[in-house]
């Protein structure tokens, strides 16, 4: 067992873990924060995307120990109290989710996308940037709409 500590959604956490522990296992099993999901074994589905020091990463393909000292944000840390993050609100408003399983990863990916590519996102860019996020329910139509709207709303909120 090896000691690890990091900041998750603004809270300092530390634990003794098996070095094999993936970040997603640390979040789900150690911290019991189950909003981050696992949908594949090959780093392709994106259900597990979280932010590590602001970068979107696949928490199923990241050792928890590598994140020692890092700041991690998960879907649970996005809203400010009862106030939804604009991207969360956009997913609801645009019916960008059905079963909800891929949704946390989609939203985390989308928020980071805006940080890199800005708040005016065209459909092509959004579709390309979703290369690493699979959804089986929505056919992506409304996810693309939601991200475009959420990006705009993030721009407005930042003003």
């Amino acid at each position: 067992m090896t000691a690890v500590s990091m900041t998750v959604n603004g809270q300092h956490v530390s634990a003794e873990i098996d070095p094999r522990t993936l970040l997603v296992q640390f979040l789900r099993e150690e911290l019991r924060m189950t909003g981050t999901h696992v949908g594949c074994d090959t780093s392709q589905c994106g259900c597990c995307v979280v932010h590590v020091n602001g970068d979107a990463v696949k928490s199923c393909t990241t050792l928890a120990l590598t994140c020692d000292g890092a700041s991690v944000t998960t879907i649970e840390g996005l809203a400010k109290g009862d106030e939804l993050h604009p991207m969360q609100a956009a997913f609801r408003e645009n019916h960008g989710l059905q079963c909800g399983f891929c949704t946390p990863g989609m939203i985390m990916t989308a928020v980071e996308l805006v940080s890199r590519k800005g708040t005016n996102l065209d459909e092509h860019t959004i579709r390309e940037e979703l290369e690493g996020n699979l959804c089986r329910c929505t056919g992506y139509h409304n996810i693309v709409k939601a991200i475009a709207a959420g990006a705009q709303a993030m721009g407005t909120a930042a003003e």
Binding site: S43, Q44, G46, V49, D55, A56, V57, K58, T61, T62, T109, E112, L113, R116, E129, E131, G132, N133
Partner: peptide
């Protein structure tokens, strides 16, 4: 290469 999250790592 890969996807945005993979490129971040």
């Amino acid at each position: 290469i890969g996807d945005p999250a993979v490129r971040n790592k």
